[in-house]
């Protein structure tokens, strides 16, 4: 069952620019460009292709992720991104379907104004869908920022705080402690993998925080991302069958 875009979804989209395009590269097996606010990432998937002898795995595909920064050589920060994207993809791709082959995923940073990790993960997933590689599940990531003041906290998705109505930018600056987190989801099972990167916050807040606020806001955003996947699926990738009724 497919979900129609209702008014509610539109509202959220207005605050958060999300554009994507598939089939951007002619030589790659799958390619995508994803634009989330001012962050733009391009991803390409080559595979399953021949694998170098010493990297060959007899029971599954060898998966390699390359993250290319805008300029210069990749540094250790980029290695961290690569390892995170890589471990997600290893779980998501049905690698046992492609033994003795390699799948290369290249993510090129085009423009970065925050939330690079989330954007790269989403771009990689789109490219994998476009390449038609068998997947256990789809994944999506969202970065959000949480501002604290004593026990009250507000959670805002990346970059949205400029337009946030109830709090002015100056007020937000007063919230000294910030907490960044990136979530990524396994949509088929409605389970979540999560990854937080951030500064401190009180452990006692963790329960209510995770339950009430973060998940709700992030599920919504992930939902938007996947409704976009859906649109592209109709146009270009007829073979991938995606079930979208999980949020109901």
């Amino acid at each position: 069952m497919e979900i129609e875009e209702n008014e509610n979804t539109e509202e959220i989209v207005n605050t958060d620019v999300l554009k994507c395009e598939l089939n951007t590269l002619s030589r790659a097996d799958g390619s995508s460009i994803l634009c989330q606010n001012n962050t733009v990432m391009a991803a390409a998937v080559y595979g399953p292709v021949e694998v170098k002898q010493h990297k060959m795995l007899i029971d599954k595909a060898y998966i390699e992720i390359v993250f290319r920064p805008k300029c210069g050589l990749s540094q250790i920060g980029d290695r961290l991104l690569e390892s995170i994207i890589g471990k997600i993809c290893e779980n998501a791709i049905l690698s046992t379907f492609y033994p003795r082959t390699a799948i290369y995923i290249i993510v090129q940073e085009m423009q970065n104004s925050g939330a690079a990790l989330a954007c790269s993960i989403n771009a990689a997933c789109l490219a994998l869908i476009h390449a038609g590689i068998g997947m256990n599940f789809l994944f999506a990531a969202v970065t959000s920022k949480i501002y604290f003041k004593q026990s009250n906290f507000i959670i805002l998705n990346n970059n949205i705080y400029l337009e946030f109505k109830e709090f002015t930018r100056k007020q937000i600056k007063e919230y000294e402690k910030t907490f960044n987190n990136n979530y990524y989801f396994d949509l088929f099972k409605k389970n979540r993998y999560c990854l937080f990167i951030g500064t401190q916050f009180n452990i006692n807040n963790f329960n209510e925080l995770v339950k009430i606020q973060v998940l709700n806001s992030n599920y919504e955003s992930c939902f938007i991302i996947f409704s976009r996947y859906n649109i592209h699926k109709k146009k270009r990738v007829p073979n991938v069958n995606i079930n979208y009724n999980l949020f109901n």
């Binding site: 390892s83 890589g86 471990k87 389970n191 937080f196 990167i197 009180n202 452990i203 995770v210």
Partner: peptide, 23 residues
């Protein structure tokens, strides 16, 4: 964890975990 404050949960990949398990 630092002084009763949670700094980071770094979980790249792996099986799906329930919230209870993380707690």
């Amino acid at each position: 964890i630092s002084d009763n404050e949670l700094c980071s949960i770094h979980k790249p990949g792996g099986n799906v975990l329930e919230e209870e398990q993380i707690k």
